[in-house]
């Protein structure tokens, strides 16, 4: 690799440029979104927003706690159909199905947010470094990540959760770690390939010519160019992560029932109810999963069609060339 010496101090000393114009420019395509993309973006944002709201305000919104099976000494009925007292009915453990769903939103979002943070902090730097420096480090990482692709995602998460379950007590952390391992290769691969293609661009060459060190180039020139694909990928991965998490929960390896409500676990407890035609214990948690995953998917796809210039459809009648502001 090039022998330019890194100069982190000089780069760090310079004040960061105002974020606002950059943010405005980044958000511009969203404001300009039209047609189907706009519809997807908004319906996705609203659906996701509802669940985020539910998750944050669960203690105030929910009629009962997720593990509550009695009220003032009177036990809840087991597997009671929807009624005024329990709008979505109760399940086999005599807990309120609606409470499970509202508190479940909290669990799902906590796990996915944690997993996203973990996966980004591992995947992004690895991808940047491997892509920029190449060499043996890159080769080995690519091989490892490719081998990880060979294990079906749910299975990988399942094995990780199974192995960590005995040593980490917090089910939320266990589930987040399991999901992290599944998604790290994706961030790594996308970023690495992007960096490899950007590495030889003239502007990077120019930065190298004026004596910028590799880490300065990575941080100031490459990072913001390649990071634009991340929001779309992260949103779509979040949708997928919910499915993985509920799959884990269904198999009994996600968040344990004493630690929080989890939709996949709820459905697993409803397997025995299906034969007797009890539908509310499956339908409502199932609907919650479908709606949240749909919301995140629509949001991600909408973002993709808005940000990705190949797919972008703008209003064709609205072509003001002079509108381009020089910010």
């Amino acid at each position: 690799m090039s022998a330019a010496s890194p100069t982190p101090s000089s780069a760090a000393a310079r004040p960061r440029r105002a974020l606002a114009p950059g943010l405005g420019r980044a958000l511009k395509p969203i404001a300009e979104a039209r047609g189907f993309a706009r519809g997807m973006l908004w319906s996705g944002a609203i659906l996701t927003g509802v669940f985020v709201f539910m998750g944050i305000f669960a203690p105030w919104l929910s009629p009962y706690r997720y593990d509550q099976y009695q009220l003032k000494g009177a036990a809840f009925p087991q597997l009671a159909p929807p009624s005024a007292l329990h709008i979505f009915g109760t399940n086999v453990q005599s807990t309120d199905v609606l409470a499970q769903i509202i508190w479940g939103a909290q669990t799902e979002l906590e796990v996915v947010a944690l997993a996203l943070i973990f996966a980004l902090t591992i995947g992004v730097p690895l991808g940047l470094i491997a892509g920029y420096f190449g060499g043996i480090f890159d080769r080995i990482l690519v091989l490892i990540m490719d081998a990880m692709y060979a294990i079906p995602p749910l299975l990988l998460a399942l094995v990780i959760a199974f192995l960590l379950g005995s040593s980490i007590t917090s089910g939320i952390v266990v589930a987040a770690c399991a999901i992290t391992i599944v998604y790290v290769p994706q961030y790594f691969r996308v970023l690495r390939n992007h960096v490899t293609s950007v590495r030889e661009e003239p502007y990077v060459e120019a930065a190298r010519a004026i004596g910028a060190g590799p880490f300065t180039i990575l941080r100031k020139y490459i990072f913001f160019n390649v990071i634009q694909t991340i929001p779309v990928l992260a949103t779509l991965n979040a949708a997928d992560a919910i499915l993985t998490l509920t799959g884990l929960g269904f198999l009994g390896y996600g968040v344990q029932p004493t630690q929080g409500a989890e939709w996949g676990y709820d459905v697993s407890r409803a397997v025995g109810d299906a034969a007797s035609g009890i539908w509310w214990t499956t339908l409502f948690p199932g609907l919650a999963i479908v709606l949240l995953v749909t919301g995140l998917t629509l949001l991600g796809e909408g973002l993709n069609e808005t940000i990705n210039p190949v797919l972008r459809q703008r209003a064709t009648t609205h072509m003001n060339m002079d509108e381009e502001d020089p910010a």
Binding site: A239, L243, T246, G247, F250, G264, V267, S268, A270, V271, A274, A275, S276, G277, I278, W279, T282, L283, P285, G286, I289, V290, L291, V293, T294, T297, L298, E301
Partner: peptide, 29 residues
Amino acid sequence: VVMYAMPVFVLGLLAQILFGSILNWLPIS
């Protein structure tokens, strides 16, 4: 999108409830 968002176990259980126990058309296990 909805099919993608539908966990296979939820779809399976709903199918069990509808075709197995309500309509009684098909075996569920």
